[in-house]
């Protein structure tokens, strides 16, 4: 539960992935936000995107193993 407690008691800081208007709305309220100019991964090729995800998970496991 502590991660939610931290969220409720800290200033909200947002990474916006998708519609730019949501980031613009947060900016207008002076909420720290980074907009990601998202595009479909792997040029929209789902097979290559799935391969990239496997590599990502593997990298995360390697990192976790090192810690």
């Amino acid at each position: 539960m502590s991660a939610i407690h931290d969220l409720f008691t800290s200033p909200i800081k947002v990474i916006n992935v998708g519609l730019p208007s949501f980031a613009a709305d947060l900016q207008r309220q002076n909420v720290p936000v980074v907009h990601v100019d998202w595009k479909p991964p792997a040029g929209g090729n789902p097979r290559i995107a799935a391969l990239l995800d496997r590599i990502r998970r593997w990298q995360a496991q390697v990192r976790a193993g090192k810690e």
């Binding site: 931290d6 969220l7 800081k13 990474i15 916006n16 992935v17 949501f22 720290p32 980074v34 907009h35």
Partner: peptide
């Protein structure tokens, strides 16, 4: 995005 705002606590996905 996370590199620019490393202490971001929420991701809004659309």
């Amino acid at each position: 995005g996370a590199r620019l705002l490393p202490d971001a606590n929420l991701v809004l996905i659309s």
